[in-house]
């Protein structure tokens, strides 16, 4: 693994250089205080110090709204919507975001492997960047450190305002060929970047906590504060639920079938045609959300299906914090254990 030094002022030049390998997509400012991944038009617009984007990078592989087919009501026929994706370079991606894409790969490609996702996911390269954790990031608690480089081709680690550029794959090496603003250097360990938010237990102890947390009082407390808007799940980088709807044009002759992100936090999510709702109460839904993150898939794959990006907490209008919920469950579990011990 080679490591090069790169001046902060030369990063736009690097972004321009990467443009030869595909469309470059990177974080940009959005609104007053937010960020989003956008196609780079001017490399000086790219934001290097950002907290988190509104929507995860998932949107580039599993679009929020996606046309699946066009149909004709007259002929009762349909036409497949071809997914054609040119090579793309994702620049300035945080480690937890990359980890979420690797988890999404599993969700969309295990069992029946979805071709739409696969086509978008192919020919994509990733350039990571380190970040300064804010009050919402807790990725270290779910096993993702700031400098986790799995999945990246290149990684920019900020050192004293400038960067160290790690070359992680042949593809990464190839992209740097001929780029002359970098100099070979010794990798440095950066001290002093600390996570302010933490889950108290190591993540490998969480499945056991969740095993006994199903009937915890914590869920009712969360449900009393939750207003059911779905923001937590719609901004989650590892959530992948969707709904499919048909839209008909004004002519009433043609239309299209499209899918859009859906959320298990919405009250109608588990409702069937006859009216039965299998997760009718908010308490059922808040619990289901966390079990999907820390138990159901985790039991099978050995990894939490949460990457600690903090979006669900940062974008919750009610300020409900996922790590706080987990910590409350841990605390309750400890109390229960204490009582069990005392009785013996």
């Amino acid at each position: 693994m080679e490591c090069f030094s790169l001046l902060r002022s030369d990063v736009p030049a690097l972004i321009d250089y990467l443009g030869d390998f595909g469309e470059v997509i990177a974080p940009h400012g959005k609104g007053d205080v937010s960020y989003s991944f956008e196609v780079v038009r001017d490399s000086s617009d790219v934001v290097l110090d950002y907290t988190r984007t509104l929507l995860p990078l998932k949107k580039m592989f599993l679009p929020p709204v996606e046309k699946l087919m066009g149909f004709s009501l007259k002929n009762g026929s349909y036409e497949q919507e071809d997914v054609i994706v040119a090579p793309r370079v994702f620049f300035g991606v945080h480690s937890y975001e990359m980890q979420s894409i690797l988890r999404l790969d599993h969700s969309m490609l295990s069992g029946s492997a979805e071709s739409n996702y696969f086509k978008r996911r192919q020919s994509s390269r990733f350039v990571g960047i380190s970040f300064e954790p804010d009050e919402f990031h807790f990725s270290e608690s779910v096993g993702v450190v700031i400098e986790e480089m799995e999945g990246f081709d290149l990684f920019l680690n900020e050192v004293d305002g400038d960067f160290q550029l790690y070359v992680l794959t042949d593809s990464g090496q190839g992209m740097l060929n001929g780029f002359d603003k970098i100099n070979l250097t010794e990798p440095e360990v950066v001290e002093g970047r600390h996570f302010k938010k933490k889950i108290r237990y190591h993540y490998n102890r969480l499945p056991r906590v969740f095993q006994y947390a199903y009937h915890s009082d914590v869920w009712a407390d969360v449900a009393s504060r939750c207003v059911g808007c779905g923001a937590c799940t719609l901004t989650c980088p590892t959530c992948f639920c969707f709904d499919v709807q048909d839209e008909v044009e004004v002519t009433a002759e043609d239309g299209m079938r499209q899918r859009s992100w859906d959320s298990c936090m919405l009250s109608t999510f588990a409702e069937v045609a006859g009216g039965e709702n299998f997760r009718e109460k908010t308490i059922n839904r808040t619990r289901h959300r966390l079990y999907r993150k820390f138990k159901y898939i985790t039991d099978e794959e050995g990894l939490p299906w949460c990457v600690g990006c903090g979006r669900c907490t940062a974008f919750c209008p009610a300020g409900i914090s996922l790590p706080d919920i987990v910590n409350e469950l841990i605390q309750e579990d400890e109390k229960a254990q204490y009582h069990r011990t005392v009785r013996v």
Partner: peptide, 9 residues
């Protein structure tokens, strides 16, 4: 959210 609007809150 699907339009990636900045939350007004």
């Amino acid at each position: 959210k699907l339009k990636e609007n900045e939350c007004l809150y």
